[in-house]
């Protein structure tokens, strides 16, 4: 199934989530291997080679596509895992690979020229010069845009580059400097960009203290939630830090991005595909979010001028939603 309106690109952290996404109406599913070559390298998550082959076959049998995220950055002198991952994605019959590192892009271009290449958001390519560099040197067919652009910015960028764009429609909001953020590295000594895990679970600790919950990353206290106060992810950018005797969210508040109410504007801007974030989320989340967006896209494709009220607030971080930079631009 390929949407006549906007392609719906959905997350799958496990084979069960892949099946859930396809059942819920995903046009395309993206997933990663069970190692450090993708940016969601968490315990128990992702696909081994056999599962990837089976997942691609399952999707193709239903007319859907599978993209493989190989979007972390190789450690110096240790490129082999990334090269093997590109080879394995090609062997599995993936429809495209989502890459960020120029060395991995070069490898894929030279060794698998027929394998379609998408530029990951981890490359943080948010301006025409950057995107055209990747397009001209590595023949990328699509760019996943960072969440720092307004709809007008997106439209102008599409006009200037003439390349397919995929934008985030549902997920998180943070400093949005993917591939260049060192906050988690600073606190844990583990690089999200080469190890594939921001705020790795091995360094996260929760403590109960008289009804309050405290979260820590390494030795750094990130947050303290009063009894019944909604909790946030234990990532450094969502920490509530004390400055001038006052605790506040210095980087970003716990809030979720939801663009479901501005899909016509994104379509009018020339966007090709919508990305749902959440490979580390459960298949229940995948089914709920994908199903909601599928219905919205089908309604719009059928001539509706707007989508019905959605019920995704409960799965959004902090229970709150925002249009992010789409309406107001980035700070």
């Amino acid at each position: 199934m390929t949407s006549s309106y906007l392609e719906l690109v959905c997350p799958a952290g496990t084979p069960a989530a892949l099946r859930a996404a396809i059942t819920a109406g995903a046009d395309t599913v993206y997933c990663g291997f069970r190692d450090c070559t993708n940016a969601r390298n968490y315990p128990g998550l992702n696909f081994d080679r056999k599962e990837m082959i089976e997942g691609v076959a399952y999707a193709h049998a239903r007319g859907r596509q599978v993209l493989v995220a190989i979007n972390t950055f190789p450690r110096a002198g240790d490129e082999e895992p990334w090269h093997r991952a590109v080879d394995a994605a090609a062997e599995a019959g993936a429809d495209a690979v989502i890459l960020a590192d120029i060395g991995v892009l070069d490898y894929a271009t030279r060794h698998h020229p027929k394998l379609r290449r998408h530029l990951s958001v981890q490359a943080s390519a948010a301006n025409p010069m950057s995107i055209m560099f990747y397009r001209d040197n590595f023949d990328i067919k699509r760019v996943v845009l960072p969440r720092v652009l307004s709809i007008e910015d997106v439209a102008a960028l599409i006009e200037q580059t003439g390349i397919e764009t995929e934008v985030f429609a549902f997920g998180s909001v943070g400093p949005m400097s993917e591939g260049r953020c060192f906050l988690s590295s600073y606190m844990t000594g583990i690089s999200p960009t080469s190890e594939g895990a921001c705020a790795p679970a091995s360094h996260v600790v929760y403590k109960e203290d008289g009804g309050c919950m405290k979260s820590y990353l390494g030795n750094v206290a990130l947050n303290e939630f009063a009894k019944d106060e909604p909790a946030a992810y234990p990532t450094p950018c969502k920490g509530r830090y004390v400055t001038h005797d006052r605790a506040s969210y210095l980087f970003e508040e716990p809030i979720g991005l939801n663009a479901i109410d501005i899909l016509p504007q994104l379509k009018a801007a020339g966007v090709t595909a919508l990305k749902i974030e959440g490979r580390q989320r459960s298949r229940a989340y995948v089914a709920q979010v994908v199903g909601t967006f599928r219905k919205a896209l089908d309604d719009l494709a059928g001539g509706a001028v707007s989508v019905a009220a959605n019920d995704l607030k409960s799965v959004a971080e902090g229970g709150h939603e925002t249009f992010g930079a789409y309406k107001t631009g980035w700070r």
């Binding site: 091995s202 106060e229 909790a231």
Partner: peptide, 20 residues
């Protein structure tokens, strides 16, 4: 987790691995 309907303490990696 957001709604505080479940609480986890201790080694988070163990819980995340089990959940996934």
């Amino acid at each position: 987790f957001f709604s505080r309907d479940i609480e986890i303490t201790g080694d988070t990696a163990v819980i995340v691995g089990l959940r996934n």
